[in-house]
Design a protein around this nucleic acid. Structure first.
Length: 577
RNA sequence: GCGUCCGUGGUGUAGGGGUAGCACAAGAGGUUUCCAACCUCUUAGCCCGGGUUCAAAUCCCGGCGGACGCACCA
């Protein structure tokens, strides 16, 4: 399917990558030792862009008011990742065809021979493989022994043999779950609330490809938003005007692309959860704010078959670029999976929230109250078990005596006098439940790649090739360059002074460039996306004014440095034009 | 992980058993009254390791890295 989006110049990717290397944006890591596939460096320009984009992401969510930032270790004990399901999920058994060398997931090859192939151990799988499974590529049926292929980097905590097994975290999310009790206290025991974390994640990919898209160590930014599933928070999405592309579940009733607003998608039932719909919209806001082309964003719903082990519903936000449509954000309704699992596996008992009823509910309960004075002497060592069994009874017997089944399966006879039938009325003011979690997970490197891709524009200027990086203000590595028109007559001194004054503003960044002709310096700044250029000329020496050049149309206006400093501290200079 | 192709200054390329060229970029100086100008000079390269050979950037083997395809991508 050839859309206009797919018809890009095939060499553009190479030229863009070359520019990113040449100008110190993104480079291969450990290059002087031959490089390591799947690991990259952000150079001086790229690291500044990454920091600013990440900061915008943090600010974006913190502005909600019920979301806080946390920070957790990247080294994670194995027990945490067993509970989360990652250890099991990451240990797919792989086998290799001895005929042609193709590698397959062993459980997929024997699916038709066993109803529960993914639960088999390696010996059972080897037996099944040995019988009659043919290689899908070459039809041989000789297989290497199945081996677990763990996509997590493992390590040990503690140097000696007694150390605990640990992994480099494959996602930041577990950190938020570990801190759930602290977050619940922080927010005064009231849902909804959320926690964000940015940082590195690690996956030992078999075959990293596509530059910054599939990395072995990558920058993630995740939000875990804890909600009461019975009262899911929602914003009014019908005020929003943007029309977006949705690609609903291909196996569901809405299969096929559609264009609509977020509110309409929720109303139509395409997006199934109001909080998920709200986060789809907020994800859109962020991406557009940092310079992603809105026409190259779409939201794709996972088919139930590709859903992650923990998710009940999942949308990918995909961005189109030189590598096609790439998943850059995953928005998943993880339900109560993580908190329940950690409560079951760990010593924690309080991974819950309290739901206060609007009115205390009066509960009438029929029970057989045990009479310890009779039960004790009668059942002696088994008394406790008898009392527990009586308390657990839901269907009370119509009459005594009756046979009571204990937890261990034994049966005892309860006779008159051992129990007293009572009807008790209690007031229940609320209940404990496990919150559900909505998780937007952002791949920062992938987003940065697409920001660069969408900003990169190859133009022509007076017959020569000319490139712009049309980064939005606040994302570029510096806000402006300061250029002395000539490298003499006091211009460099004044330029240095202005650069210093801008850098003294909180958050503002300027660089000075005085080498080579003025046109070349503008071109250098345009190429890495600096939005503003301040030029110090002879007039500047007389009255302290400079020219401001706007990257996107090369229009220049003259202004005084004091005004510029005021505008820059308000994060834009657009008002000058 | 398998297969095909590939790896030369910062970038893009030429060469292909005997002194590694070019363009752009970069640095110094000159010139220049706002958009990759010009002049002079300079810096800087054969991915790594082994083999063959009098001699290897070149041929062979292995590794690393890249592109594409297959597989994988929770």
């Amino acid at each position: 399917m050839a859309s206009p989006l797919d018809m890009a110049d095939e060499r553009r990717l190479e030229r863009l990558s070359a520019m990113l290397r040449r100008r110190g944006v993104v480079l291969p890591a450990f290059d002087i030792y031959g490089g390591v596939s799947g690991l990259i460096d952000y150079g001086p320009v790229g690291a500044a862009i990454r920091r600013r984009l990440t900061q915008k992401w943090v600010d974006h969510w913190l502005s909600h008011g019920d979301i806080v930032e946390i920070d957790s270790p990247t080294i994670t004990p194995e027990s945490v990742l067993i509970a989360s399901g990652h250890v099991g999920e990451f240990n797919d058994l792989m086998t290799e065809c001895k005929g042609c060398g193709s590698v397959f997931r062993a459980d997929h090859l024997v699916e038709h021979l066993h109803p529960n192939a993914d639960s088999l151990d390696s010996d059972s799988i080897d037996n099944l493989l040995g019988s009659e499974v043919k290689c899908p590529s070459c039809s041989e049926s000789v297989w290497t022994p199945a081996q677990p292929m763990n996509l997590m980097f493992s390590t040990r905590i503690g140097a000696m043999s007694t150390g605990r097994t640990a992994y480099m975290r494959p996602e930041t999310a577990q950190g938020m779950f570990m801190l759930y009790p602290a977050l619940y206290r922080h927010f005064r025991q009231k849902l909804p609330f959320g926690a964000i974390q940015t940082g590195k994640g690690y996956r030992n990919e078999i075959s990293p490809r596509q530059g910054m898209i599939r990395l072995r160590e990558f920058n993630m930014a995740e939000l875990e938003y804890f909600i009461d599933p019975e009262y899911p928070p929602a914003a009014d999405l019908n005020r929003r005007t943007e029309i977006v592309t949705l690609v609903p579940d291909p196996d569901g009733p809405y299969a096929g692309d559609s264009r609509m607003g977020f509110g309409a998608a929720l109303d139509a039932g395409i997006v199934r959860h109001p909080t998920v719909a709200w986060f789809l919209a907020r994800t859109w806001d962020f991406l557009v704010e940092v310079g992603i082309n809105p026409a190259k964003i779409r939201f794709r719903q996972h088919a139930s078959t590709e859903m992650a082990h923990y998710a009940a519903d999942c949308w990918d936000c995909e961005i189109h670029g030189e590598h096609g449509w790439i998943e850059c954000v995953g928005i998943a309704n993880r339900t109560c999976h993580d908190l329940e699992s950690h409560e079951a596996h760990s010593s924690a008992k309080g991974l819950r929230a309290w739901r206060q009823f609007a009115e205390p509910r009066s509960q009438t309960l029929d029970r057989l109250a045990p009479n310890g004075a009779v039960i004790g002497p009668t059942f002696k060592a088994e008394s406790d078990a008898v009392v527990s069994a009586l308390e657990a009874l839901t269907d009370l017997p119509d009459s005594l005596p009756f046979e009571l089944t204990l937890a261990d399966g034994k049966t005892v006879t309860i006779v008159e006098g051992m129990v007293e039938r009572r009807t008790e009325t209690t007031n229940v003011s609320g209940e404990w439940f496990t919150p559900h979690v909505i998780e937007p997970a952002f791949g920062i490197d992938r987003i940065i790649w697409h920001v660069l891709d969408h900003a990169y524009e190859e133009a022509e200027k007076e017959g020569e090739d000319y490139t712009f990086l049309r980064l939005v203000e606040g994302i570029s590595s510096v806000d402006c360059v300061v250029l002395p028109l000539f490298d003499k007559d006091g211009m460099p001194e004044l330029a240095r002074e202005i650069t210093g004054a801008i850098n003294a503003l909180p958050g503002a960044r300027a660089e000075m460039d005085s080498s080579k002709s003025i046109g070349r310096r503008y071109a250098r700044a345009d190429e890495i996306g600096v939005p503003w250029a301040l030029t110090v000329d002879h007039t500047s020496l007389e009255d302290g004014s400079v020219t401001i050049r706007r990257r996107d149309d090369q229009v220049q206006v003259r202004a005084f440095v004091e005004e510029i400093l005021i505008r820059l501290s308000n994060e834009t200079m657009q008002e000058f034009f």
